[in-house]
Computed example of a mutant assay.
Amino acid sequence: MGERNFMKRLLRGAVVLWAVYFLVLGVRGLIDPGVYADNLGVSLDGVFGASTIRGDLSAFFIVASVFALLGALPFRDGRRRRHDWLLVPASLFAVALAGRGIALPGGGASDPGISMAMIAEAVSVVLLLVTWRVLGRTRR
């Protein structure tokens, strides 16, 4: 029983740190979309490009963060299956990972930025799914 509680707390803490990082990135991108240009390899071409990058990437990171927090934090409101919210950010990052995978045959594998982004996305998906699974276990 103690090991299970420790694992749940450890995973909850890891997801909360993950979510805070991406929430900060999302909010920073709303304020200054150049953050995405510097960190994610996208360019800001004109007002339309900047607003698209600001809106789309910030939405991605903020929504993923909010749902990760909703799924990881231990609310005591009597609702069951709250951990299912973790599937939202896991799905977002899995689709992003798949999208990057499409770029690999066209020479994307040689770009270290793509490789690092894919590693970060894969680790995120694994963290979120493992946490979802562990939090979903009930006592028998």
Rank of each mutant, 00 (worst) to 15 (best):
Gly136Pro: 07
Leu128Ser: 05
Ala59Met: 14
Val27Lys: 11
Leu104Ala: 13
Ser124Pro: 14
Val88Lys: 04
Ser91Val: 06
Leu86His: 05
Ala59Glu: 10
Leu70Ala: 11
Ala50Pro: 00
Asp45Thr: 15
Asn39Glu: 13
Gly13Glu: 03
Arg133His: 12
Ala90Thr: 04
Leu17Tyr: 06
Leu87Val: 05
Leu97Tyr: 14
Ser51His: 05
Ala90Ile: 03
Gly99Tyr: 10
Leu30Cys: 11
Leu57Met: 15
Phe6Met: 05
Ser115Lys: 04
Leu97Trp: 14
Lys8Gln: 12
Glu121Cys: 08
Leu87Tyr: 07
Ile114Phe: 01
Pro89Met: 10
Ser115Thr: 07
Leu86Asp: 04
Asp32Ala: 12
Phe48His: 09
Leu127Ala: 12
Ser58His: 13
His83Glu: 14
Arg12Phe: 00
Ala37Glu: 06
Asp56Tyr: 09
Leu97Lys: 13
Leu57Ala: 08
Ser51Met: 07
Val24Ser: 00
Gly108Leu: 06
Ala14Tyr: 01
Gly106Cys: 00
Gly106Ser: 14
Gly41Tyr: 08
Val35Ser: 10
Arg140Ile: 01
Glu3Phe: 08
Arg12Cys: 01
Arg139Asp: 13
Val15Gly: 00
Leu86Met: 03
Val66Trp: 08
Leu23Asp: 00
Asp111Pro: 02
Gly107Ile: 00
Arg100Asp: 12
Leu17Lys: 02
Gly136His: 08
Gly49Trp: 05
Leu70Ser: 02
Gly13Ala: 08
Pro74Ser: 05
Phe93Val: 13
Ile62Phe: 12
Trp132Leu: 04
Phe61Arg: 07
Ala103Ser: 15
Leu57Glu: 06
Asp38Phe: 06
Ile119Leu: 15
Gly2His: 09
